[in-house]
Design a protein around this nucleic acid. Structure first.
Lengths: 129, 129
DNA sequence: TTTGACCTTCACATTAGTGGCAAGGTGCAC
DNA sequence: GTGCACCTTGCCACTAATGTGAAGGTCAAA
């Protein structure tokens, strides 16, 4: 598919799709006329990229962890550059921290919302003060 | 405590502490000489702010959800401005999405790391191809 | 053949979050 | 009093992510 279609399917602006390409996150093929063509599997990939960026993972890191996703067992190993392993471990830990953090705070919000609801469904003057 | 001390305790640069103040996230009192003074409870608050920002929540939103945190039941209700409730619900949902997303991807990384370890502890030429 | 929807690159602007520095006040310690 | 560590405000700059618009190419359909 071409960039407009991918944009529609993912909800990501074409501008951003080109930006991700510039950052090395996706590498669409090109038609003779220069148009970018995206394989179907890239829809999922772009969604992942967006989710990660939205979660505060910079593109630099996203590009490192992308190889971890989607390939069940294939491309592993081989490219065992030193440092990558440690980087991935560190990033995984950072993600765990974020998860804990978000969970904690989301639960607090939920709690707060419940309290608001309780307050709203009450006579508003009952035992106030 | 003053800003330097808070910075040390939270690991957040003084520059950022002033920025958060500018964004309305914290409002330290002032000494006669103009120095900012922070109450102890702000240490926790600043850590929360950092965590949220690191998780991709913009300061604008952080300022909305901060009231949800830390107050067990007290300041609730009263200020039931319309729209706030919906915003909080939406933000909570967004956080849930992020949590799911991060969890998924973190697990994929973990899986990948495991595969790398397995590959590394193997004769490297065994059944390769 | 012209129109219109799509695509291309280039470039400039903006926003958020940061970092850094300059110029100056405060206050303790020697 | 001098020095030093801390604080103040203000400003400039940078990066990442994003918006936007110009100038132009492609292609199908009317």
């Amino acid at each position: 598919m071409r960039i407009g279609e991918l944009s529609k399917q993912t909800g990501v602006a074409t501008r951003m799709l080109r930006y991700y390409e510039e950052q090395g996150l996706i590498t669409p093929r090109r038609l003779d006329n220069g148009y970018r063509v995206y394989d179907d599997y890239l829809v999922d990939r772009v969604r992942k990229i967006r989710g990660l960026i939205d979660s505060g993972i910079p593109t630099r890191i996203v590009s490192c962890i992308l190889p971890c996703l989607g390939h069940p067992d294939s491309i592993v190993a081989e490219n065992a550059e030193p440092g990558l392993f440690d980087l991935l471990e560190a990033e995984r830990d950072r993600m765990s921290e974020k998860i804990d953090f978000l969970t904690q705070n989301r639960d607090a919000i939920t709690e707060y919302l419940r309290a608001l609801e309780r307050a709203a469904s009450q006579p508003m003057g009952t035992k106030a003060g």
